[in-house]
């Protein structure tokens, strides 16, 4: 049991105005799963991902990550946990500008406890996502699909237990999007836990399980028996 969520609630307060986003969610995610969290915009799926990814805290309810009660952890402990166990892939890539591809991928390692062979480790992950020839390029010199692969390499470089991908194909053309989904599926096949957040049914169908969220509650939690398999070159419908 990697993630154990019980009656999780989240609300935001802005100048006395309370906005309730999540209204009590409960589910469990085990190691090795590939879960898509799906819902339209405003459903609360991104908020849920931020809480699951230890970037934000729940207002109420229980959240255990890798056996630890998140509510009891300090900000720095959360930072260490993110560094050691979590990889993020964002819709807008979030790469450092005016910085080389290699340095971008090295970034999590510079904050890690173990700083041995940083260059070598980053280079190897970049080769695995097919960017071995782009190490010294700056991030403004490569294509969108390549940027997202750099982001994936950055998410993988610290050997995380879980990868969160927030609309990873949202800013990409269909071909690049399929490449990204293919990489995520392959990562899952070799044992990585992958959480995919998306509003597209088509993209979500690449996962093994879909949790459907609407207006802050789970409306559906189903297992996909014959999921889509992404092949390089496939086109989105």
């Amino acid at each position: 049991m990697l993630i154990n969520i019980k009656d999780l609630k989240k609300q935001f307060e802005n100048e006395g105005l309370v906005t309730k986003i999540l209204h009590g969610l409960s589910f469990v995610i085990n190691e090795g799963e590939f879960v898509a969290i799906m819902g339209p915009s405003g459903s609360g799926k991104s908020t849920l991902m931020h809480i699951m990814g230890l970037l934000d805290r729940a207002s109420e309810g229980k959240y255990e990550f890798a056996g630890r009660d998140v509510a009891t952890l300090s900000d720095n402990e959360l930072a260490d946990l993110r560094n050691a166990k979590i990889g993020f892939v964002f819709q807008s890539f979030n790469l450092l500008a005016r910085t080389s591809v290699l340095d971008n991928v090295k970034l999590p390692l510079t904050y890690a406890q173990d700083k041995k062979n940083i260059d070598e480790r980053a280079r190897k992950v970049l080769e695995n996502v097919g960017l071995g020839h782009r190490l010294d390029y700056f991030t403004n010199q490569i294509s969108g699909g390549e940027k997202q692969r750099v982001a994936i390499a950055r998410a993988l470089v610290n050997n995380p237990s879980i990868i969160f991908a927030d609309e990873p194909t949202g800013n990409l053309d269909s071909k690049s999007g399929i490449q990204i989904m293919e990489i995520l599926q392959k990562l899952n096949e070799v044992g990585n836990t992958v959480i995919l957040v998306t509003h597209e049914t088509y993209t979500a169908e690449h996962a093994k399980r879909i949790i459907n969220i609407r207006d802050g509650i789970i409306v559906e939690d189903k297992t996909i028996n014959n999921r889509r398999v992404a092949h390089d070159g496939d086109l989105l419908k």
């Binding site: 970037l55 930072a79 560094n83 993020f88 979030n94 970034l107 904050y111």
Partner: peptide, 16 residues
């Protein structure tokens, strides 16, 4: 701001 957010997301502590 976004860079700071990213650095924190990948594990930078407050002191970093």
């Amino acid at each position: 701001t976004r860079e700071i957010g990213l650095r924190k997301a990948v594990g930078a502590r407050t002191a970093n």
